[in-house]
Amino acid sequence: MKIEVRDVVKSYKHKTVLKNITFTMEGPKIIGFLGHNGAGKTTFLNLLAGLIATTDGTILVNGDNVFNTPSTLRDICFIAESGNFQEEMTIAQALKANSFFYPKWDEQLAQRLLQVFALNPKEKVRSLSKGMVSALGIITGFASNAAITIFDEPYIGLDVAARSMFYDLLIDQQIDNPRLYILSTHLIDEASELFEEIFILQEGQLLLQKTTDEWHKHIVAVKGNATDVAAAIVDLEIIDQHMFMQEMTAIVHTGGHPIEGYNVTLESVSLQDMLVYLSKQKARSGK
């Protein structure tokens, strides 16, 4: 599957949420789609799922405009943070309704996962805990067999063991039935090892798009005394910098250029730390 995002803008009355973003996603692959609250992640995912229209620009899936092609939408399963199921339905009815929409629905997998997550198919959605609703969403996403499967904060209310089960299922499903998974989550330390490619939105714009290998080469922490660090990072994009005791740390995007010949230490930067730095940027800008 290939997703082409071309100059996409999404505006509401008094706010532009997405600002002329352009990028390409290709699968099968597990993609981490990340950013702080308000970065525009969920808005974009709603656009990709055809639930809302762009203000400007286009989103193509295998060359077809997603918003105007109903057949394409059957290849996209979007499990949102909430509101995925009608509350008056039973679990069995909710799964049955989804089975009619997704042509590659795997009923056997759905039934097996009901047992894995200990859900009673006769229970109504309105009576479920947050964790149980999340489990129902996870079951729907996997059983849909949609070529593009999107999970937006999929495990609210689930404990560590259940989240671990989700990660294991994701890996197993990708091995057995490869597809393009897009995972948006705040539990980045837990999920980061799953990602093959990383997209980060910041203030409605695409800040970074890197494979996991590229990430470690392009995003680094430069540490040393202030003079040495300042010399080493000249002309590099500075994401964050701070002093602790007598040592300066600068988080930089190297653009692939090696930092050599300076009296500094280079360290890797975790995805979780990167999002913390971006949140600091947002706070300092007052946005």
Rank of each mutant, 00 (worst) to 15 (best):
Leu208Asn: 00
Ala92Gly: 08
His36Gln: 13
Thr265Cys: 11
Gly256Glu: 01
Thr254Cys: 03
Val229Leu: 04
His218Leu: 07
Lys13Glu: 15
Gly137Asp: 12
Ala97Lys: 09
Ile198Ser: 00
Gln115Gly: 15
Pro103Thr: 13
Asn145Tyr: 09
Cys77Ile: 00
Ile200Ala: 00
Pro258Asn: 09
Thr22Trp: 02
Tyr102Arg: 01
Lys2Phe: 01
Ala221Ser: 14
Gly261Phe: 09
Gly131Phe: 09
Glu153Val: 07
Ser285Trp: 02
Ala110Pro: 05
Ile188Gly: 02
Cys77Ala: 06
Phe117His: 08
Arg284Tyr: 03
Phe44Val: 01
Gly57Lys: 05
Leu208His: 02
Leu169Ser: 13
Asn98Gly: 05
Ile219Leu: 11
Glu87Tyr: 08
Leu47Gln: 03
Phe67Met: 12
Val133Arg: 15
Lys41Gly: 09
Tyr262Cys: 03
Arg112Val: 07
Ile238Cys: 06
Arg163Asp: 07
Ser268Thr: 15
Asn98Trp: 01
Leu180Tyr: 07
Leu18Asn: 04
Thr90Arg: 01
Ala39Gln: 02
Phe44Trp: 04
Ala118His: 10
Pro70Glu: 00
Gln209Cys: 04
Glu123Tyr: 12
Ala80Thr: 01
Ser11Met: 08
Glu107Met: 09
Val220Leu: 14
Val8Gly: 01
Ala143Leu: 06
Thr16Leu: 07
Asp240Glu: 14
Met274Gln: 02
Ala162Leu: 14
His14Lys: 14
Asp273Ser: 12
Val264Lys: 05
Tyr167Asn: 14
Asn98Met: 13
Leu194Ala: 09
Tyr262Ser: 08
Tyr277Met: 05
Lys19Trp: 05
Leu180Ala: 06
His186Phe: 03
Phe23Lys: 06
Asp189Gly: 13
Gly27Trp: 02
Ile3Gln: 01
Leu73Asp: 01
Ala147Gly: 13
Lys41Gln: 01
Leu183Ala: 09
His253Tyr: 11
Ile138Thr: 12
Lys217Met: 10
Ile239Asp: 08
Asn62Glu: 15
Phe100Trp: 12
Lys96Val: 04
Leu109Ala: 11
Gln209Arg: 03
Tyr12Val: 09
Arg179Trp: 14
Ile259Cys: 03
Asp213Asn: 13
Arg126Tyr: 15
Leu183Cys: 04
Met245Phe: 15
Glu267Phe: 03
Val17Ile: 10
Leu109Trp: 01
Thr265Lys: 14
Glu203His: 06
Ala147Tyr: 10
Glu123Lys: 15
Asp152His: 11
Gly141His: 04
Ala118Thr: 15
Ile259Pro: 05
Leu73Lys: 14
Tyr262Leu: 06
Lys122Arg: 15
Pro70Ile: 01
Asp152Thr: 14
Ser144Thr: 04
Leu266Arg: 10
Ile171Phe: 08
Ile76Pro: 02
Ile79Lys: 00
Gln246Ser: 13
Leu275Ala: 06
Ala221Met: 05
Phe33Pro: 03
Gln108Leu: 07
Ile200Asn: 04
Pro258Ile: 06
Thr149Glu: 11
Arg163Leu: 10
Glu203Ser: 05
Ala94Cys: 06
Gln86Asn: 10
His186Glu: 06
Ser192Arg: 12
